[in-house]
Structure formats: C-alpha cells, structure tokens
C-alpha cells in the first residue's frame, strides 16, 4: 500500500507538473497533426493513408515520449529533486516505473490524434483493434524506455534532446515507418532488426491488414524483451551513475 501511494503520487505529480501543462498538451495534439498534414501536402492526391498510418502513429509516440523524459528525468536530476525520490523507502525499480508511467500515458495520448483522424476522416479500417491497442501500448513502453536510457546517460536537458535525435531520426528510415524494410539496402537492414520500433510498427501494420514481417505474437514477445532489457539497463545505469 505504501509503495502504491508513492507510485501514484509520483505519477500524479509528473502529470500535473509536466504532462498536463498547456504547452505539452498542445505538443501532443499539434505534433502528430503536423505530421499528418505534412504527409497530406507532400503526397497530394497520391496520399495513401494505409502506407503512412503506422509511421505517423509510431513517430508521434516516439517523439512525444523521448522529449518528455528528457525533462522529467534529466531536469529533475540536474535540479537534484530526483535525489528526493532516490532517498524514499521505495525500490528504484518502482520509482523508475512511476517516472516513466507518465511518459507512457503521454505516448498513448499522442497516438490518439493520428488514429482518430485516420479512422474518422480518412476512413482507415482497423481490422484488429486489440492489435492496434497493444501495438500503441507496447510502442509507448519501448519508446519511453529508449528515452529513459538516453535521459539517464545525459547530464543536461539539451544533451538528452541531442542524444535522442541520434536515435530518433535514423529510426524514421530504419524501422519501416515510411520505407518498407524490404526496400532498405541489405547491408544496413540488420540495423532495422535491432531497433525495437520496427516490431511496434509491424504490429500496427498487422492491425490495419497491411503486409507485415513477423507474426503478431512474436512481435509482442520481442517488444517485451526489448522493454525488459532497456528497463534493467536503465536501472543499472542509474545505480552505476547516480549512486556512485
């Protein structure tokens, strides 16, 4: 019960202090909307929503979660308020989970805009809603954990944002967001398979009946593995770097 009170209040505090602030809510709406608009303008009549839907959803999640974690983790670490959390009688695992919960929810919220626009305006037919929901949830988890890994490594917020871009932009091209993995040169294709976003996008493709690489269940398993790996890697880094 005590741990739950701590968990809930860390999440609540982050929601109030960061995620529910008007600039961040507008980021969550404008950013995915801008991506959709850009695609629409760029492709004009040749715009095929089925091709870009998984990519836009994944990007909205990826950019939203990683950007926010740079603030909630790196900024608090810099201002030393994170020490307060480390001194609380709760496990570091629970504390970190509480800190990333807000970002996961923010990632899910970010994905709602392209999903709603695609379904209600562009009439995208979702064939498997469970797969779509799980795909969004797992993508939010894995993108958040990527952001966590980066944020723990950075000392300053701008550093975290810069490091994030090293990961985020190559992912746009490598994870099958807009370019099918089969079209990526063979020599760099292995990179696509070591990036977790690839499997999240594959689930989203599956959910709307588009061609996909792996089976839905196997994608989920791989994402679960990536989530656990990144979570424990980040915990190890916090213990190694912050409790020196």
């Amino acid at each position: 019960m005590k741990s739950f009170i701590a968990y809930w209040n860390i999440l609540l505090k982050d929601m109030k202090n960061y995620y529910l602030k008007p600039p961040n809510i507008s980021w969550g709406i404008i950013f995915p909307f801008a991506w959709m608009l850009m695609m629409f303008v760029k492709t004009k009549s040749a715009f095929n929503i089925m091709d870009v839907f998984p990519g836009i959803v994944a990007m909205s999640i990826l950019f939203g979660t990683t950007s926010m974690l740079a603030v909630t983790i790196t900024f608090e670490r810099k201002s030393r308020s994170f020490e307060r959390l480390l001194l609380a009688p709760i496990s570091i695992e629970l504390l970190v989970f509480a800190k990333i919960s807000g970002a996961i929810l923010f990632g899910i919220f970010n994905s709602l805009i392209p999903v709603l626009i695609s379904v209600f305006y562009f009439k995208v037919v979702v064939e498997n809603y469970l797969a779509l929901c799980l795909g969004i949830i797992f993508l939010s988890f894995v993108a958040t954990l990527l952001g966590l890994y980066i944020s723990v490594a950075a000392k300053e917020v701008f550093e975290a944002q810069t490091y994030s871009n090293f990961f985020r932009f190559p992912m746009i091209f490598l994870c099958g967001l807009f370019i099918p993995i089969s079209s990526i040169p063979l020599i760099i294709r292995p990179l696509s398979y070591i990036l977790p976003i690839t499997y999240g996008v594959d689930i989203l493709r599956f959910s709307i009946g588009e061609s996909h690489i792996l089976a839905f269940g196997f994608n989920l398993l791989l994402l679960l593995f990536f989530c656990s790996f990144l979570f424990f890697l980040s915990i190890t880094n916090i213990k190694r770097k912050w409790i020196v």
Binding site: I5, A6, I10, K13, N17, R84, L85, L87, A88, I90
Partner: peptide, 29 residues
Amino acid sequence: IGVVADESNLYAEMNGFDNLCFCGSLYGM
C-alpha cells in the same frame, strides 16, 4: 532518516504545501 542536502532541492513549480504533501507520499503517508 530525513536528509537535507546542501542545496534546497524541492520542486520549483509546486507550492510549499504541495511540496510537503508530495514528500509525505513518498513515505507512503
């Protein structure tokens, strides 16, 4: 144990009362 670091490290955006309540919640109060 209670710890007061050499810098005042509470949450800048929160008011005094909320800061104290938040710290209490970390101890499961």
